[in-house]
Amino acid sequence: MPTFTIVAGARPNFMKIAPIIHAIQRQQSSHPDLHFRLVHTGQHYDKKMSGDFFEQLNIPEPHANLGGGGGTQAEQTAAIMVAFEKELMENPCDLVLVVGDVTSTLACSITAKKLCIDVAHVEGGIRSGDLTMPEEINRMVTDSITDHFFTTSEIANENLRKSGFSEDKIHFVGNTMIDTLLANLPRFQQPEGELFDRLESGNYFVMTMHRPANVDQEHKLKAMIQAILDGTGDLPIVFPVHPRTAKNLQALGIQDPRLHMCEPLGYLEFNYLVKNAKAVITDSGGITEEASVMNVPCITLRDNTERAETIHLGTNELVGTDPAKLKPYLEKIMAGEWKQYQGIPLWDGETADRIVSILQKAYSA
Rank of each mutant, 00 (worst) to 15 (best):
G9K: 07
F14R: 01
I20P: 00
I24R: 00
R26A: 12
S29R: 14
S30C: 14
P32I: 13
L38M: 01
K47L: 03
K48R: 12
A64S: 08
N65K: 05
L66H: 14
G67P: 15
G67W: 11
G68I: 10
L88T: 03
M89G: 06
E90W: 07
N91A: 10
L95Y: 03
D101L: 06
C108E: 01
K113Y: 08
K114N: 05
H121R: 08
H121E: 10
G124Y: 10
G124D: 14
G125N: 03
I126D: 09
S128L: 12
G129Q: 02
T132V: 08
P134V: 04
T151M: 04
T151V: 05
T152H: 00
S153V: 03
E154I: 07
I155P: 04
I170K: 04
M177N: 04
T180P: 05
T180R: 06
L181D: 07
L185W: 08
F188D: 03
D197Q: 14
D197I: 15
R198E: 14
M209S: 14
R211F: 00
E218L: 15
Q226R: 12
A227S: 13
I228D: 02
D234Y: 12
D234S: 15
I237V: 14
P240I: 15
T245S: 06
K247S: 13
L249M: 02
D256Y: 11
P257H: 09
R258F: 10
H260T: 14
C262R: 07
A277M: 10
G285Q: 02
E289N: 01
E289P: 11
C298L: 13
T305P: 01
E306A: 07
E309Q: 09
E317S: 15
G320H: 05
Y329I: 15
L330Y: 04
K332N: 14
A335R: 13
Q342Y: 09
E350W: 12
E350N: 15
T351Q: 03
R354A: 00
S357A: 09
Q360T: 02
Q360R: 07
